[in-house]
Design a protein around this nucleic acid. Structure first.
Length: 898
RNA sequence: GCCCGGGUGGCGGAAUGGUAGACGCAGCGGACUUAAAAUCCGUUGACCGUACGGUCGUGUGGGUUCGAGUCCCACCCCGGGCACCA
């Protein structure tokens, strides 16, 4: 029997055996509950896995392994998100075709995942770039198309000049492309979009039932951005229009022009002193027709500037407000007064109606604009005392001149003033009454707006799923019939993107030219689907991955879905998770799946950080935005004095040069040590700081397990189960069983609640406790032998999900014939985990003064009496009167005295 | 600015309102060794005290409670997300 952990001696042997025996093939036996554990669909990068990625896979693996041992049918698949920009860019860089490259990279991922002992069922593996998979991605595209949820539109899109393709709104962060970092440009080209906005409300509502991190749900709610308000119409008085009869008594009646505004604060309508149109607003063209040349030129110039500005410039923080007075006016329906209409780029065409009513008294943006352009500010809410004291002013002073203060009074619970018959009402009452009035007037209605935009899905790139659309001579689209799916991606030599917004596929005339359904000449859609389409349904395909007739057998999906536990990084909070939810809802509405939500429980693992050297810039060097040091490569560290370098904890990444690969970690410490370390070192959701000392601790722990079992193995009785519960247990035997059942209880509960760090610490504690007990034990009697045997087996099984190689090796050495994966997860008996005695805490006035050993079932009276007769307690109650004694059975006594 | 997380020993971190610091790392002392490594045993929040013991202590300030790391209020700091969305 080994007495320490020497992974080189046995870990590979077990991995080979598991593979040989096809141990992790999905079990689909009747009469068992199912469990679907899934990791985010990874893109297999050429750099391979780091120990940071393992942080995702190991915990899911532990949970899946326990579930299997508990008797569940477990689906734990893995595949690869192979289509998309990262793969294509890397292939271009290496001047090779993406397909064989991806095959190679995926192979490396699989090898590394197997190396750390993850229990994936590889027989279900597929890549999103497999024609047998994307055939069905195309089929779902058709479904969306047929349901009116996929549309081709001429729209202004966000163009990434580095990756040479358009981007979805979700792929842009602060005006830059999330992936390439390029400043996005605007381009007007025809694009395919999915109408995810049709599902905005459902996507918000159904979040409530999900067991997801609250932060992720909140991020999705914010992204969808629901707001309730009122949309109403205002009459426009064009510049130069007569405002009443002329000197001859004639009134010039023009066709009245109107425009609509959306507001969430209809209660402030009496404070509207001007209106603002987005520079792209269609009404501006009408206004210009009535403007003099100078004004027209001024407006044109402003529109031109606004168009040229990138979003990042237009929305730059603290940017001063700009705008132009159009000379036109709107009639405020509340006051009947004419208010000027401005154009300004702080109003966006894409949201609401692209026009606003401006209430400068209670909206900071409108206020800033009003100050700059000298416009009226009319308060409609009485300021509260907090605002008055902050500005060191009085109510009368504020109401007389609100413009003197830099910050506006924004409120939702003030009292209305200057608001006609509504004055004196509060926010809620006023809003409701004024909304009703607008509706009754027939000029508007209540409306809900969402910030969510439709999902822009076409990409002008080669390496993606072809869109199954053919255009006829007139350019009318039709879908490719099912029998002709998949539309295969043609093999080409040159697939580099072009600058003009056309896809590389458009250059392949043989492929582009085809016939329509009725045999006429036609041409194919040459854009491809963005990668997020492919990952929006892969979890369904895993339920039935090799089905050639259908995307999936409904029975299989009905059995396995929803995913019970979905694990991956928080960076996909709104993109992948929102899209996949959307597709699932569409498929539900089409009757193809019977779940409305794909992922019942979601967990986000923390990152793995590595200590990374940085130095201060030298003369002539400058730091990038947000950086406070210059990265130093590890190989260059010896060239610096120690005090020149500062080490920071930074996420492991290739670009930082701080990656530790699982290959290195397994070579140096062992796969089980890596697993145990990553589980133990920090709570699951938290970042961990990679440390070789910590890894060494995991090695030490596993060695202690080997030694303990080796020490106990002479007492091993493999048939302990037959007689243990019929044998009376006293003294040490009872103590051993208590340790065992406490361990099983804690491990089972902790794995279930993703508390892997305390699960590992519980096994460490048990090992320590067994060790101590063993030392005080002479030659064991029969009941002690049984208790020790139970302890050995339970420890090995409880450890099996975390350290499967170790458990299987120990089990074999004990004479076991099978992998521990096939054994039943131990069940704890609550009464055996119960302590006989407790350490009772005695407090005087809430401060601990003494502890006493008491029987666990001591009566409250006995506890109180014991507490009061403690000498240490008496010291603190002397000369005082005991007012009250609080007894918490099994825990403590608190004596209140003064 | 808004929305989420989070602040506990030298470090990573434990603690259904009930003995703060489990478990591990690092440190210190010892055993084994010619020696070192490895391993094992002991010890380790701070301060006062020879000791029994005492005082303080979970970002800060208040509050609720017999009792608060945990609940409530205000604030400070760190990390993440969103941001001219009317």
């Amino acid at each position: 029997m080994h007495d320490r952990y020497e992974p080189a001696l046995f870990e590979q042997k077990w991995r080979d055996r598991w593979k040989e025996q096809d141990l992790f093939r999905t079990r689909e036996e009747d009469g068992r509950e199912k469990f679907y554990g899934l990791d985010f669909f990874p893109y297999p990068s050429g750099a391979g896995l780091s120990v940071g990625h393992c942080r995702n896979y190991i915990p899911t693996d532990v949970l899946c392994r326990m579930k299997y041992m508990q008797g569940f049918n477990v689906l734990h698949p893995m595949g690869f998100d192979a289509f998309g920009l990262p793969a294509e860019n890397e292939a271009i860089k290496n001047k090779i075709h993406p397909a064989p490259m991806i095959d190679k990279y995926a192979g490396t991922y699989q090898r590394q995942m197997e190396l750390i002992g993850i229990s994936y069922d590889w027989s279900r593996e597929f890549k999103s770039s497999d024609p047998s998979y994307y055939k069905w991605t195309q089929w779902i595209f058709k479904l969306l198309y047929d349901r009116g949820l996929a549309e081709r539109k001429m729209i202004e899109v966000n163009w990434d000049p580095i990756d040479k393709t358009v981007l979805a709104a979700e792929e842009i962060i602060g005006g830059r492309a999330e992936r390439s970092g390029a400043l996005v440009e605007k381009k007007l080209i025809p694009q395919w979009i999915f109408k995810i906005t049709n599902y905005a409300q459902q996507l918000i509502d159904d979040l409530d039932e999900l067991d997801w991190p609250e932060g992720i749900k909140q991020q999705q709610r914010n992204w969808i951005g629901r707001s309730e308000g009122v949309e109403f119409e205002m009459k426009v008085v064009l510049p130069g229009a007569a405002s009443g009869p002329d000197e001859n008594g004639f009134e010039v009646i023009e066709k009245p022009h109107t425009f609509r505004v959306f507001t969430t604060r209809i209660d402030t309508i009496f404070g509207m002193t001007f209106c603002v149109l987005a520079p792209e607003h269609p009404l501006i063209a009408e206004i210009k027709k009535h403007s003099n040349d100078a004004k027209k030129a001024e407006i044109d110039e402003y529109q031109g500037k606004a168009k040229a500005l990138s979003d990042i410039d237009r929305q730059a923080e603290g940017r001063e407000k700009t705008g132009v007075d159009t000379g036109a006016h709107a009639i405020n329906p509340a006051t009947g007064k004419k208010v000027p209409i401005f154009i300004a780029d702080y109003v966006m065409m894409g949201y609401g109606t692209g026009a606003i009513m401006a209430v400068p008294a209670h909206d900071q943006r409108d206020f800033d604009f009003a100050v700059k352009f000298g416009l009226d500010v009319v308060p409609v809410f009485k300021p509260d005392t907090a605002y008055l004291s902050e500005n060191n002013t009085s109510e009368a002073d504020y109401l007389a001149d609100p413009k003197q203060f830099k910050k506006v009074f924004e409120t939702k619970d003030g009292i209305l003033v200057n608001s006609g018959e509504y004055s004196g009402m509060g926010y809620a009452e006023g809003s409701a009454a004024m909304a009703e009035w607008i509706v009754a007037l027939g000029i508007g209605e209540k409306k809900v707006n969402y910030k969510l935009r439709d999902w822009l899905i076409s990409r002008q790139r080669y390496w993606g799923c072809p869109i199954p659309i053919i255009y006829d001579k007139e350019g009318n689209p039709e879908t490719v019939i099912d029998d002709l799916l998949p539309v295969e991606l043609p093999d080409v030599d040159n697939y580099e993107p072009s600058d003009d917004g056309s896809s590389p596929l458009s250059r392949i005339t043989d492929w582009v030219n085809t016939t329509t359904r009725d045999g006429a000449l036609g041409h194919r859609e040459t854009d491809t689907l963005g990668g997020f389409a492919c990952s929006s349904w892969y979890f369904l395909r895993f339920c039935d991955p090799h089905n050639e007739q259908k995307a999936w057998d409904p029975e299989r999906v009905k059995y396995w879905m929803p995913v019970d536990c979905y694990v991956g990084g928080a960076e996909h909070a709104v993109m992948h998770l929102l899209y996949a939810r959307f597709w699932t809802k569409v498929l539900y509405d089409a009757g193809l799946v019977d779940v409305k939500e794909p992922f019942a429980r979601l967990m986000n693992q923390g990152q793995v950080l590595a200590q990374t050297p940085y130095r201060q810039p030298k003369d002539g060097e400058s730091l990038g935005v947000g950086e406070d040091g210059i990265l130093v490569a590890f190989k260059d560290v010896p060239n610096y004095q120690p005090d020149e370098l500062t080490y920071k904890w930074v996420r492991m990444s290739k670009s930082k040069g701080n990656v530790v690969t699982p290959d290195e970690a397994v070579e140096q410490f062992g796969a089980d040590a890596l697993r145990v370390y990553e589980l133990f070192v920090a709570p699951f959701e938290q970042a961990v700081q990679w440390s070789n000392d910590g890894m060494q601790g995991a090695v030490r722990f596993l060695s202690r397990v080997f030694r303990l079992v080796s020490d106990m193995s002479t007492h091993w009785d493999e048939s302990w189960k037959l007689s243990i519960n019929a044998t009376a247990m006293e003294g040490k035997a009872k103590d051993i069983r208590r340790i065992t059942h406490k361990l099983i209880r804690k491990a089972t509960e902790d794995i279930e609640r993703f508390a892997f760090n305390t699960y590992i610490s519980a096994t460490m504690t048990a090992v320590n406790d067994y060790n101590d007990l063993l030392k005080s034990l002479g030659e064991p009697n029969p009941s002690e032998r049984l208790a020790l045997s139970e302890a050995i087996q339970s420890l090995v099984l409880v450890l099996s999900p975390a350290a499967p190689h170790t458990s299987d090796e120990i089990w074999e050495q004990l004479g076991g014939q099978d992998s521990t994966y096939h054994l039943d997860w131990p069940k704890f008996q609550a009464e055996l985990a119960q302590d006989d005695t407790i350490t009772m805490a005695i407090q005087v006035n809430g401060k601990l003064r003494d502890t006493l050993e008491m029987p666990a079932d001591a009566s409250q009276e006995a506890m109180q009496e014991a507490a009061l007769s403690s000498e240490r307690v008496k010291v603190h109650t002397e000369g005082k009167t005991v007012r009250k004694v609080i007894v918490i059975p099994g825990k403590l006594v608190n004596i209140v005295a003064n």
